[in-house]
Design a protein around this nucleic acid. Structure first.
Lengths: 118, 118
DNA sequence: TATACTGTTATATTATTATATAACAGTATA
DNA sequence: TATACTGTTATATAATAATATAACAGTATA
């Protein structure tokens, strides 16, 4: 689930980290109240500098997704309720798209454009 | 279709421009052989510096989406065939999601995570 | 030919992002 | 208490992204 940042995507690493953790929370893979790996472990997991991890975690804190305790760790604060039906819709869509052998980036581009213009 | 760049999204402006033009081509809104607005017009449309426009257009050139002619303009080179069925799948998904009142960013996060992990 | 469009190239400056590295401070436990 | 984990703060450096601005060069047309 949590994985190396893509350093060639052009998307700032700290944002990739923010998005990865957010979506894990949204999907229920990171549960309310549970503890995240330590900063120094996350540094290895994401393959970035410690400051980049901190920048991402601070942003998630500001947005209310996590909280921290000195000397202990970071914890998932709230799992924003995402209706199971929404996840189901997206799962079905992704399955269909993968069967169409269309690639991820093209799908995302079309998805974005369709969303913003229709 | 072509619109102002979002300067608070964190995504580099030149990449937003690249993606916007790409998806317009993919969706068939920018047709093969047709001419893009001039660099100085695009500068106004996207609300960025001229160098940022040039950076985006150079990238699109490198990737084979457009070509340029000195003193004349930029032209759409090829429209990568996207099956109409794929666009239909995405349109239906977006419609359902909008009816669920889920927001764009959350949808994209879930979409990305589901794609990469299932 | 003169003008007004095109794309192209260049320089300098600022802000953001990411890195390396170090040190400090709170917590738990042998 | 000593140790080894946690988070926190700080400084310096480099790479990237974005800006402002200017000048050069090709094309079309009045």
């Amino acid at each position: 689930m949590l994985r190396k940042v893509d350093k060639h995507s052009g998307i700032p690493a700290y944002l990739q980290i923010v998005n990865m953790i957010k979506s894990e929370i949204l999907l229920g893979n990171l549960q309310k109240g549970s503890q995240l790996p330590s900063i120094r472990d996350l540094q290895v997991i994401f393959d970035v500098n410690i400051n980049t991890v901190i920048k991402a975690l601070e942003k998630l804190k500001t947005e209310g997704y996590i909280e921290s305790e000195q000397g202990i760790g970071y914890f998932i604060k709230k799992d924003i309720d995402v209706e199971e039906s929404v996840i189901k819709i997206i799962r079905e869509c992704v399955t269909k798209l993968k069967n169409s052998r269309i690639d991820y980036h093209t799908s995302m581009l079309i998805f974005e454009e369709v969303w913003k213009n229709e």
